[in-house]
Amino acid sequence: MLEIKNIHKSFGNNEILKGVDLAIDKGDVVVILGPSGSGKTTLLRCINFLENADQGNATFGDIQVDFQHVKKKDVHAIRQRVAFVFQNYNLFTNKTALENVTEGLIIGRKVPKAQAIEIGKKALDKVGLSEKYDAYPSQLSGGQQQRVGIARAVALNPDIILFDEPTSALDPELVGEVLQVMKNIAAEGTTMLVVTHEMGFAKDVANRVIFMDGGVVVEEGSPHDIFVNPKEERTKKFLKRVIPEDYTFYI
């Protein structure tokens, strides 16, 4: 469904993405792991054009894009199919939870208001916030705000949802509720591309894991391949740092 080839991105003199290939099929739940600075977030942001990649191309269903010559209407078309969940939630602070969820539907996709509200309410119910339709982001906890952010993405019924470290800005006790929502969405068959440090999620929910380091894909495979039988040295070193010594994976 989504195929990225040879994507390069530099910030000034710093080359962050040094030629990355990525292929996602419908129904995949792909987790990208890696140390900070490895380019995971940049990769995600390039996919929905929050950053402009310097080089490479992408095929999204029937749309082909060359990153060096991007057309505005292609960007718009792709953004209709791709939803993004931000690390800092980025909820519209001047709108209620329900309005946040329906904004993209009503304005971005010209869905009639009544229908959009229905879809929005269903999405908020799905993430467990049925009582918070009219709450403003300032009245919600971090975990609740992120769940609204996920509802906002889900309501758009996208082909794929990109998650950029969705739980990294949350207090530890709020991480669980967000991960649970993500698990539920994955179980429904949503295609997800997730950058995260939550190894448990990668192990339990993902069907593919990609390890990135230094702007390239070092290794990829099923969770079993990566966590239990890592092949590359760099992968092993990374896993050693983030997972306690005596932890055995049961997959």
């Binding site: 929905n48 929050l50 953004r79 993004f84 931000f86 980025n90 909820l91 904004e103 993209g104 971005g108």
Partner: peptide, 17 residues
Amino acid sequence: PKGQFEAAVSVGLTPIQ
């Protein structure tokens, strides 16, 4: 915050919207 703009275009609004 820049994130407000990013979120807006991510849900499909044009920059002007």
